[in-house]
Design a protein around this nucleic acid. Sequence first.
DNA 1: CATGGGATTGACT
DNA 2: GTCAATCCCATGC
Length: 212
Amino acid sequence: MSADAAQSGPARSARHLRALQLPVVRAARALVGCTIAHEPRSGDVTPCSGLIVETEAYHEQEPACHAFAGLTARTAPLFAAPGIAYVYRSYGIHALLNVVVEPAGTGAAVLIRALQPLQGVELMRARRRRDGDLCSGPGKLTQALGVGLDLNATSLLDGPIRLGPPPPALPGEPPVLVGPRIGITKAVELPWRFCLAGSRHVSRPWPAGLLA
DNA sequence: CATGGGATTGACT
DNA sequence: GTCAATCCCATGC
């Protein structure tokens, strides 16, 4: 392979791969604009995918993170290698999807909080049983994609859920806003929520935003 | 072993 | 704006 091919082609299309190597807060920032798809292996179900428009970072050093409690049966996937999915049940009802990052042994992950629907919108509508608000929240997007707890600890590079690069149509680095995380009671002050600037698909209206 | 608290959502006043 | 649904698991006795 030539040096050109190694730099120009893959370099831009591999943003999701580079994000997996970053510290969790930078990873959360970098994953905005990348894509998530659920393509069941059987192939008899329509693939569904979306553009990541909102993320949050969680790290074992701060108490809002499940990994703060240490390595347990529940949190084990958080301490796995980068690129693993951490899917857990929230409020006894919803499945929430995280991208595990940082080296194995460190508990850290990026919560995927909202998507802009791309593929499989009709199937999303059927799964969600409504026409709008298909992926504008962490519980909504897993329902729309058909992602359940059975996909916990699966690979996001090799498994049924795929983390992908930004779509070709999306130019370079998207403008991203940063603010405090939502729905937590501990470490509420950390500005670890990231959102695609101007997106209509976020989970909550954006506070007067700072550019990340 | 009993208990309580969520990284939420949708329905309702 | 309020509130119930619903269940895993960490914590404490």
